[in-house]
């Protein structure tokens, strides 16, 4: 994989997350129209190394993880997630699946895997290994159609729960996801909001996650976005890979079915 060095000015601009409006993001996009210059590629490269590294009490790599298409089959797997897994008896997205593989194959406890989920942008931290690995695995579906299966009863139920939860209002702000993401042309301050009921809009969104977030200086995955919007809703931290985040991701992914993954994305 090629990674072209970015010009210094772009790097400096990327490092300044303050009050970035939509206009300046468009400028970045123009500057970075050359896709190879997306810093997300560096994180994918790191993710590949961590993925293949022998780690944990069992000193094993993640190469034997089954993401739904069979043991060790990464190509196209993310494009067909979330899905029902027989071994865990539940619907899993990429990241909850990673957690169970790290527990089964590498012998980590759940608490160990979840001890440090995300690189902290306020401290200029790099991505965690977990984030980098997820970004790497997702990238193996680049260019493929979003095509989550909907055959198993569990998949159908999860999709239904995801949409119902999307409308669930709670917390001191009385927000649900639908407060901000169910109409065209809406903004919070200058940030445009995806309408999940607009096919084109949601395809554009889901096909570009994982994404390099310019304002964070790291790649982010779906689980982080779910946490981030809950944080804005002023709820407690929603658990990584929890049934609710998986249900939401399932709903969003099905809304975006037929879109084509264009990874890694790059956003504010």
């Amino acid at each position: 994989m090629k990674f072209k060095a970015m010009s210094l000015s772009v790097v400096l601009a990327l490092a300044a997350p303050v009050a970035m409006g939509e206009a300046s993001v468009e400028e970045y996009r123009a500057m970075l129209a050359d896709k190879d210059a997306n810093p997300g590629f560096l994180i994918i490269d790191k993710g590949e190394i961590y993925f293949k590294e022998k780690r944990g009490p069992k000193n094993a790599s993640l190469e034997q993880c089954d993401f739904g298409l069979g043991v060790g089959k990464l190509k196209g797997a993310y494009a067909q997630l979330p899905r029902y897994f027989k071994d865990t008896k539940r619907v899993q997205d990429l990241e909850s699946r990673l957690v169970s593989c790290m527990m089964d194959l590498q012998g980590f406890t759940e608490a160990e895997v979840k001890a440090k989920l995300y690189g902290d942008q306020r401290l200029n931290e790099n991505n965690t290994q977990l984030e980098a690995i997820a970004t790497y695995v997702a990238f193996q579906s680049n260019g493929m159609k979003i095509d989550p299966p909907l055959k198993h009863a569990g998949e159908k139920e999860t999709l239904k729960l995801g949409e119902a939860y999307f409308w669930n209002r709670h917390g001191p702000m009385d927000f649900s996801c639908a407060t901000c993401h169910a109409e065209d042309g809406k903004r919070v301050r200058l940030q445009t909001l995806v309408n999940v009921y607009n096919k084109q809009d949601i395809q554009k969104t889901m096909s570009t996650w994982p994404t390099y977030r310019v304002s964070h200086g790291v790649a982010r995955n779906n689980q982080h976005r779910m946490w981030d919007c809950h944080w804005q809703m002023r709820t407690p931290d929603i658990d990584y890979g929890s049934p609710a985040t998986v249900a939401l991701i399932s709903f969003l992914t099905h809304q975006a079915k037929g879109g084509v993954y264009d990874l890694p994305g790059m956003k504010r």
Partner: peptide, 28 residues
Amino acid sequence: KLVAASFKPGEGQDMSRLVQDETQKLCS
């Protein structure tokens, strides 16, 4: 049930925020 399974109580987590009042329930 989904909510109960998806947020973990602990330091700094005010679980009471997840309890809906009548209005939130009806609007949901």
